[in-house]
Design a binder for these strands. Structure first.
Lengths: 198, 198
DNA sequence: CTCATTATGTACCAATCAATCCAAAACTAA
DNA sequence: TTAGTTTTGGATTGATTGGTACATAATGAG
């Protein structure tokens, strides 16, 4: 029927996502995207209609890749709620320091995008707000369950504790990107759990 | 001797700092800087030798404006150490929400720059690392004093608690920039203090 | 007044930006 | 083979980027 593609769209999207992840939206040029994906300009504009569109799809993919497993973990009935949060924080430490022999973290595309584009890009904004609502809801539910079962401190409402855990995650990612070593980030996670412990 | 300047260098630097603060380094063009400062191109390049140089001076000014009062507060002998940290967090909430009737925070230039430039701009990197070391040292000292005097929990070392407080501050700023309202950010601060309370 | 010196505004520079155009290429259905 | 459709690469677009050149303006020292 027509000339077939010589590349895999999913792989190309992954490569673009990593480029945006490492360097941000503004600092990633369309030329960078060509080199990262291995595609020519025409193929990129034919497949993804603009740089901004490609960024939206990259962000959507990142959110899917990161948030879905986190929600599953927070709803895991096999683990006590406090343990779910402990594992969540441990996983974040893990992802921040995996495959980075120079010790410098690449950070988190969600946090990076909040800082770079929140308030200036309505579409990215909406995606980030929705993602955060989903994550906060899962945290609230796990915390409420933990308070009921007795493993999590009841001195504050689930809403407050969920906001706290969410902010600590962001703080850990900023610290890692700022050059903090693994022990330092693990100390943040461990101390945060103190606030949840009865 | 020579033609005098028709503008105040300090005011111009403040205006440039606010432009970088609101939009980041890459997204702020030299044209934006001209409009923000009210100066012509020649005056800007004559006074500050390049966009990057102007950014470094803006960042230095921001760090001075933010960190110096925070250090003074953390060393205030009039207040019990835990109270110093409580006031520190309260001030951060205050600065994030002052003069922002739309509720959208502009964030923190230090955090924004860590996320945007850490690992890619060695000079900005060095300034940020030094600033963070100063802030961590002040936090450690206040926490150690609090543990000795009895107002701060001793279940973790001052180094760990300082890292924790520092990360929470970053997390609060990301949350505010992401659209969280004042009550949500205050909940983060209050919960963080739980981890420091015996 | 005259002159050396600095500030300022305008025009301009090459480089890069995101995006488009178009012709050649590669495939399939008929 | 042929017609129809989409992909691909390369050239090119106009706008914008950070930065410069240069002529003119404004000052105080002599």
């Amino acid at each position: 029927m027509a000339r077939p593609r010589t590349f895999d769209e999913g792989r190309a999207l992954d490569a673009a996502m990593h480029a945006f992840w490492a360097n941000g939206y503004e600092a990633t040029s369309t030329q960078d995207l060509c080199e990262a994906t291995g595609l020519g300009r025409s193929s990129i504009y034919n497949t993804f209609s603009s740089k901004h569109d490609l960024f939206k799809r990259s962000l959507a993919r990142y959110i899917e890749l990161m948030t879905v497993p986190q929600i599953e973990l927070l709803e895991d009935p096999e683990l006590p709620p406090l343990e779910r949060i402990r594992v969540l924080l441990a996983r974040i430490v893990e992802t921040e320091f995996e495959h980075r022999p120079d010790g410098r973290s690449i950070g988190c595309l969600t946090v990076n995008t909040v800082v770079e584009l929140a308030g200036r890009d309505p579409e990215a904004d909406a995606m980030l707000v929705r993602d955060q609502e989903v994550r906060l809801a899962a945290l609230r539910a796990a915390i409420a369950a933990g308070q009921l079962a007795g493993g999590i401190a009841t001195r504050r409402a689930p809403e407050e504790l969920a906001r706290f855990v969410n902010a600590v995650v962001g703080g850990m990612r900023v610290a890692a990107k700022g050059g903090a070593d693994r022990a330092a980030v693990e100390a943040v996670a461990a101390t945060a759990l103190d606030a949840l412990t009865p």
